[in-house]
Simulated scan of single mutants.
Amino acid sequence: MGGSGGVYEVRRAWTRAGVSWFAAAAVLIGVCFVPHVEPADTDHIELVFAPFALWVAGVCSSRRVAVRVGEDGITLCRVVPFRKPEFVGWADVVAVDWSDDEHFWGRTSRLTLYRRTPRPVAALPGNPGLEGLDAYLATQVDPDFVATFRSTIQVERGTTLTDVDPARLAAALTALAPTVRHFGDLGDLGGATPATRLTPGR
């Protein structure tokens, strides 16, 4: 983690998920060397797990910047270093969603930017059924929440193998882009609108 003058950087790092994935792959590779354990007709099956273990180790040990929240906008870097990072200026960022989810294989997290579209989505043609549904949703959902989906596209990056600190991320967003809405787990940490969760049931 790093940053100065309000800038916040999220870096690749060894996380609980990374350690778990690497350990699981290492155990499977080790089991393959135990006599009479490897299934018949599957010589060198450990070669299937070795690339994954090496990939996890390489990503977690790289300490490369994954996300940079700066004065001009957000830069989303890719796992593959030779691919060009994607920069989104604050003028185009409507909302930021960071969510930490629990699955049967462990915890994962993701960062989603809601980027303003060049052409706002037009309203749907008049339809009594749709109008009734819109009227009902208007009483159940924050209008700003609906507007975010109508006028944006999503840009998403996984942050499971990073040292992201949601409190510092929310603070940086508030300091550098006070009009940007916070969704997901960031909704509890401030933002332009009251806390809103995008994931049903969360």
Rank of each mutant, 00 (worst) to 15 (best):
116 R>H: 01
109 S>D: 06
140 Q>L: 13
24 A>Q: 07
68 R>I: 10
112 T>K: 13
126 G>W: 05
126 G>L: 06
112 T>Q: 07
130 L>V: 08
57 A>R: 03
93 V>K: 00
6 G>C: 00
200 P>N: 10
2 G>D: 02
200 P>S: 07
97 D>R: 04
143 P>C: 09
198 L>V: 15
79 V>Q: 11
178 P>H: 08
50 A>V: 15
18 G>F: 05
7 V>I: 05
93 V>S: 01
126 G>K: 02
199 T>A: 01
24 A>N: 07
76 L>W: 08
165 D>A: 09
127 N>G: 02
29 I>Q: 00
123 A>H: 09
146 V>N: 07
140 Q>C: 12
160 T>I: 08
79 V>H: 08
145 F>P: 03
149 F>R: 09
21 W>K: 04
50 A>D: 04
73 G>R: 06
80 V>P: 12
196 T>I: 12
38 E>P: 10
174 T>F: 02
178 P>A: 05
57 A>C: 14
159 T>E: 03
171 A>H: 04
69 V>P: 01
168 R>H: 12
35 P>V: 13
148 T>F: 04
14 W>N: 01
78 R>I: 06
59 V>S: 05
171 A>C: 08
30 G>K: 14
112 T>L: 04
152 T>F: 07
186 L>M: 12
57 A>L: 14
83 R>H: 09
50 A>P: 03
